[in-house]
Nucleic acid binder design. Structure first.
Lengths: 196, 196
DNA sequence: AGACGTATCTTGACAATGTAAAGATTGGAG
DNA sequence: CTCCAATCTTTACATTGTCAAGATACGTCT
C-alpha cells in the first residue's frame, strides 16, 4: 500500500476515468459514488469537492466517453471520406465502438442526459457529437443532390435511427443470434437501401 | 382511510400494476420497492412474499407491459393484415405505443431482461413477443418471395432495428425536433425502402 | 521566508433503500 | 374446531447519496 498524500492532485479527472472503467466492467446499475471514490483511494465524500451530485459526475463521464467516441468517428471520416463505401464504414465504426464496450450504450442513452438536435440546420444545444458528425457527413454527401431539405432531414434521421437501432440490438445482453455480428454487419447496413 | 384487512388478497398483481404506474409517471430511476409497497398500502417487506427480489418484480412488470403491448400489436395485425400499407401501420403502432408511455422504453430495454431470438426459425427462449410478432409478420409477407433465408433474416433484423431505433429517438427526453413526430412518422418509416 | 486564506480532502451523521430474519395474522384443509 | 402454511408486519442491518463540520496543504501576499 502506497502512502497516499492528502491531496490527490488530479482527482476530478481520475473520478471520471475510474467511474468509466467501473461502468465498462459492471454496468451503470452497479455503480455507486462511493465505489468510484474508493477506486481513487479517496474518502466517500471527496467527489463532492468536484461534482455537486452523482448525477453531475455521470454527466461528465458521458461527455468524456462521447468525446472519445467522436474522435474515433472523425478518424473514420478522414480515412473513408471520399470512398464509395463511406457510409457503411461509418456505420460500422459507430456500431463497433459500442460492441467493444456494451455497457456504454445503456449508460449513455438511458440516463436522459444525451441532447440531440435533429433539425437539419439546427443550432439547439446538443452534447452528442457523434450524431452531429453523422448528420454533417450525410449532408455533405447530399450536397449535390436535388433532394428537398425536408427529405434530407428525414434521411439523416432515418439513417441514424437505423444505425442506432442496430447498435441497441448488438449490445443487448439476452439477444440470441447464431451468427457473429462481425460477419453480418456489412450486409445488414446495406439492407438500408436509400436513394442518393 | 379505509381500514385495511391484514391480507391484501391480490397483492402480487397489485404490486405489478402499481409498480408500472409509478414507472409510467416517474421513470424507472425513481422507483423503489418500498414506494411500490406503500402504494399498495402494505409494509415495505410484503413484496418478498411474492417476489424474491426487486429485480424479480421488475421482470414481471416488464412481462406484463410486454404482453399488453403484444395484444395491441396483434390488434393492429388483424386490422391491417392484408393491406398494402401493413408494414407502415405496424411500425407506427410499435412506435406509438412507446410515444404514449416514454418511460416504458428505457424501463424495458435497459435492465437487460428482454430476451430476443433473432434467428429466423429460432426456438430459443424469448420473452419479447412484440419482436416475435414482427418477425412472423414480415416472414409471412416474404412467404412467396424467392429471397434467400439468409436475406430474409437480415431483413427482419434490419426492419426491426430501424423501428426500434426510431422509437429510441422519439422517446428520448432531450431530443430537439421542430416537427411533430406524428406528422413525420409516415415519411420516416417509408424512408426505409427495401426490396420485397 | 512565514502567515494566511482557500481549495481540497476526511470524518461523522442522516435518510432512503434492498434485503433478511423472526414474529403476527388469517384463510382453509383436515 | 384445530392447526398448518401462506401472507403480512416488525425489526434489523448494510449500502448508498448527501450534507455539515473539521483537517490538511497549496499557492499567494507581504
Amino acid at each position: 500500500m502506497e502512502k497516499k498524500s492528502y491531496h490527490h492532485k488530479n482527482l476530478k479527472n481520475d473520478l471520471i476515468e475510474k467511474g468509466i472503467e467501473l461502468v465498462d466492467e459492471y454496468g451503470i446499475n452497479r455503480l455507486s459514488l462511493r465505489k468510484v471514490a474508493q477506486a481513487c483511494n479517496v474518502s466517500h465524500a471527496a467527489p463532492y469537492s468536484h461534482f455537486s451530485s452523482k448525477e453531475q459526475l455521470l454527466q461528465e463521464m458521458q461527455l468524456y466517453i462521447t468525446n472519445q467516441f467522436a474522435m474515433i468517428l472523425e478518424d473514420t471520416v478522414s480515412k473513408y471520406q471520399n470512398m464509395p463505401n463511406f457510409l457503411n464504414e461509418f456505420g460500422k465504426a459507430y456500431i463497433s465502438f459500442f460492441m467493444k464496450r456494451p455497457q456504454y450504450f445503456s449508460f449513455l442513452f438511458h440516463q436522459g442526459n444525451i441532447q440531440i438536435d435533429l433539425d437539419i440546420n439546427g443550432n439547439k444545444k446538443s452534447n452528442y457529437r457523434p450524431f452531429t458528425i453523422y448528420k454533417e457527413q450525410i449532408l455533405k454527401l447530399l450536397a449535390n443532390s436535388d433532394m428537398s431539405q425536408s427529405k434530407k432531414e428525414d434521411l439523416v434521421i432515418a439513417l441514424f435511427a437505423y444505425v442506432h437501432g442496430l447498435t441497441a440490438l448488438t449490445t443487448m445482453k439476452n439477444v440470441h443470434y447464431s451468427h457473429k455480428w462481425e460477419d453480418k454487419l456489412d450486409d445488414l447496413i446495406k439492407s438500408f437501401s436509400c436513394e442518393f
